[in-house]
Amino acid sequence: MPLISASLKSPILLHSLSNRSLNPRFIFSTFLDSRAVVKQTFSFRQVTRAYSNMSGDGVAQFNLSPTSFLKIQKGDITRWLIDGSSDAIVNPANERMLGGGGADGAIHRAAGPELKTACYDVPEVRPGVRCPTGEARITPGFKLPASHVIHTVGPVYDVDSNAPASLSNAYRNSLRVARENNIQYVAFPAISCGVYGYPFDEAATVAISTIKEHCDAIKEVHFVLFSDDIYNVWLKKAGELLPN
């Protein structure tokens, strides 16, 4: 079978591994730089499902319930916006809630110093801890396009004795806080998949399964993912867990 290539907003090449199987396998190869290539294996059905749900702006949509949708896209979560009044981005914070590296630092920089001031005002539950692992807090978004920031703390994969439960709690409590504050649209990053070391495939399984179970009263849950390799894994896992 000849090489099949796909030109999308995400730089992905699609290669067939079989021309005889009724359900052939494919590889998505994402070129991160001149030396590194990230490869993910997909079945034909997963490819078809994911890309049949892809809109013209590169956003893949899946049904969570009759009234809720999951949308997966590449991008910068600090620029995400639905309506500026009932939307929130989720910040993968640390327990101090005073900013840090990665997405946490980027969100604080984009929101401006008012966000750190608001975080200082969140009561500590014990010295130095405003948001324990798995819990969530909410503040205004200040200079961010989205109206609110929901701060949650994911587990450190090699340290937490029950990392899947802690990660699930981070997603579940973020959605609970959203409902309590009349937030209809929520955008998540891939919690714990940076320096906290959570394996992407396992994290995607926990994230999408938890959101599917706890999406009540939320119109849209978004994943806004910065890197190609995480985006590819999330697309694949959504195709497996959310058959439309």
Rank of each mutant, 00 (worst) to 15 (best):
P164L: 14
P132K: 14
E180Q: 14
I230F: 01
I150Y: 00
I138P: 02
Y157H: 13
L225Q: 04
G197D: 08
L115P: 00
L225T: 01
A187L: 07
Y231P: 02
L115G: 02
V224I: 10
G141F: 02
N173F: 10
D201E: 15
I218L: 00
V186R: 02
R109D: 06
H148I: 04
R126G: 02
G197A: 12
N162R: 15
T152M: 06
N173R: 15
F188S: 04
S192F: 05
S192C: 07
S147W: 09
Y171K: 14
P164R: 15
I208E: 01
R176F: 05
A190Q: 02
H222I: 03
R126V: 12
Y231D: 00
I183G: 00
I138V: 12
H222V: 03
G194R: 11
T210Q: 12
V224Y: 02
S166Y: 09
D121W: 06
N182H: 10
V129Y: 02
E124Q: 15
A204R: 10
R126I: 06
T133M: 03
A118N: 04
L175V: 12
D121H: 12
Y231E: 00
Y231R: 14
L175R: 08
D121Q: 15
G194S: 12
D158K: 15
N232H: 05
L144T: 05
E220W: 05
G112R: 15
E213S: 08
F188M: 09
E180D: 13
E202L: 13
H151P: 02
T205C: 05
I211G: 00
N232P: 01
A165K: 15
A163G: 06
N162F: 13
S174T: 12
Q184F: 07
H148D: 11
Y185E: 03
K116H: 12
N169M: 15
D158Y: 14
K219Q: 07
K116F: 04
L175M: 13
I230M: 10
P113T: 13
S227P: 04
T152I: 09
G128H: 11
I208T: 08
D228A: 13
Y198D: 06
R179K: 15
R176M: 13
F142Y: 15
E114N: 08
C193A: 11
H214D: 08
N182W: 07
T133E: 03
K116S: 05
K212F: 03
R172F: 07
I183N: 11
K116P: 00
S174D: 04
V186I: 14
R176Q: 13
L115N: 03
N232M: 11
V149A: 03
A203D: 06
G197C: 10
P132Y: 13
P199R: 15
K236W: 06
I208F: 06
V195D: 10
L235C: 03
T133W: 01
T210P: 03
V153N: 05
L115Q: 07
P189F: 07
Y185G: 01
K219V: 09
C119E: 00
I211H: 05
A163H: 10
R126C: 10
G141V: 05
C215M: 08
I150V: 08
Y120C: 04
A238I: 10
T133N: 09
K219N: 11
C131F: 05
Q184M: 13
V149L: 01
D158A: 14
